[in-house]
């Protein structure tokens, strides 16, 4: 599974992309975020507040309860500020 980070999530975590293989009991985005927090202090800080994070799975917006599967592209980012 590929996890992508943008904006301040990318800066705090220190990378824009990582390949991860979460255990089988990680079934949804909220579970993935909880699991990712254990990867280090940068992850823990960036992912502390799930309400500050927006989610896309395979480039479609999704909520924290959305299911994830091996091979998915999961992107985590702050609310958008384009235009």
């Amino acid at each position: 599974m590929r996890v992508l980070y943008f904006a301040w999530l990318r800066q705090r975590i220190g990378t824009g992309e990582e390949k991860v293989e979460p255990p089988a009991e990680v079934r949804d985005v909220a579970g993935l975020i909880a699991w990712l927090r254990q990867r280090g202090p940068g992850h823990a800080a960036a992912l502390a507040d799930i309400s500050a994070i927006r989610i896309a799975i395979n480039q479609e917006f999704a909520g924290p309860d959305a299911a994830i599967r091996p091979g998915d592209e999961v992107a985590l980012f702050p609310p958008m500020t384009g235009g």
């Binding site: 943008f6 992107a75 958008m80 500020t81 384009g82 235009g83």
Partner: peptide, 14 residues
């Protein structure tokens, strides 16, 4: 279009 773009298109400003 500009209203929707601002809140839905994945851009971030530093």
């Amino acid at each position: 279009l500009i209203d929707w773009l601002k809140t839905r298109a994945p851009f971030w400003k530093l």
